[in-house]
């Protein structure tokens, strides 16, 4: 194999996983922006998306697109219920308390998934044919292209939503200054609820996209969640473009290090990058340097 096709192979693999990390990271930033909490249950929504879709498809006669839609819808509802039951009723909603609650929620969702679906890995079939395409000597599966275009589409839609819709603008207002937003008549509570639903939907979408490549099981959420968190930190918590860039960079570096160094260090790469960013540029690559005066 030529060196350049080898490199393209590593890049294609890296961008595919990177795109998933990006979607997970976006889920983190959406909730961070509206609540300032880090939702450690984010990874579990990725798991829920994949598992629900696999479960629905296993039931006879459900077409792929319907299963995807329903899986996203279910995960969104679970995200909303999660917010209603565990975040909203908290009497002393300090950021630290809420973060710990999300960790508890994540363990609960994972445990429930294990009881409902069992401990086996489950396959999800590819969206289209599984015949790989050959691009400059590198093999790229159609599912990888689905992942890339799916992520791109989600990012574009999200951008338009934030820039041009009233709800999107209200969400941004909450992110800038919650008190001021409240004074302008924006219901912050509703925005928080909305952001939980939105990030659950994004997470579930990511879980469905990646499941045909990596399989899914009740415990895939933890690692994907952590990698997405690293990506969000890398880009600067709260920055959407930063989250996407962070995901892609971490995915690509992981793949390159597995290829050229040793796959044993692959997971370490993400966390090493996160530590370096925290040391040298705590606000992240795209982070706002001057925060709140």
């Amino acid at each position: 194999m030529e060196w350049h096709s080898q490199l393209i192979q590593y890049l294609a693999t890296g961008i595919t996983t990177g795109a998933i990390y990006a979607l997970v990271a976006l889920g983190f930033t959406i909730i961070y922006n509206s609540t300032e909490i880090i939702n450690f249950a984010q990874g579990e929504f990725v798991m829920l998306g994949g598992m629900i879709a696999a479960g629905l498809l296993a039931m006879a006669g459900m077409p792929m697109w319907a299963a995807i839609m329903l899986a996203i819808a279910f995960a969104t509802i679970i995200g909303i219920i999660f917010e209603q039951l565990s975040i909203r009723p908290v009497k002393n909603p300090s950021v630290m308390n809420l973060i710990i609650i999300t960790i508890g929620g994540s363990i609960l969702i994972k445990g429930a998934a294990m009881i409902i679906w069992g401990k086996d890995d489950r396959p999800l079939r590819s969206f289209s044919s599984s015949q790989p395409l050959h691009i400059f000597g590198a093999a790229v599966t159609p599912q990888s292209l689905w992942v890339m275009t799916g992520t791109l589409l989600a990012v574009i839609l999200l951008h338009f939503f934030y820039e041009y819709t009233i709800t999107g603008k209200a969400l941004r207002a909450c992110a800038y200054n919650r008190k001021a937003a409240k004074l302008c008549g924006i219901s912050v509570e509703r925005m928080v609820l909305f952001s939980f639903g939105l990030s659950a939907a994004l997470g579930a979408f990511a879980g469905i996209l990646i499941a045909p490549i990596t399989f899914t099981s009740y415990d895939v959420g933890t690692m994907l969640g952590l990698k997405g968190f690293c990506a969000a930190i890398f880009g600067g918590l709260g920055s959407n473009p930063g989250a996407v860039l962070g995901g892609l960079v971490i995915g690509t570096l992981e793949s390159l290090s597995a290829g050229y160094v040793s796959s044993g260090y692959k997971d370490a790469v993400a966390f090493l990058i996160m530590l370096l960013v925290l040391y040298f540029r705590p606000a992240g690559i795209f982070g706002k340097r001057t925060e709140k005066v």
Partner: peptide
């Protein structure tokens, strides 16, 4: 080699 939780071994196989 690859890790127990690895989701993609394309790099090693390449």
């Amino acid at each position: 080699r690859f890790g127990e939780q690895d989701a993609d071994m394309t790099a090693q196989l390449t």
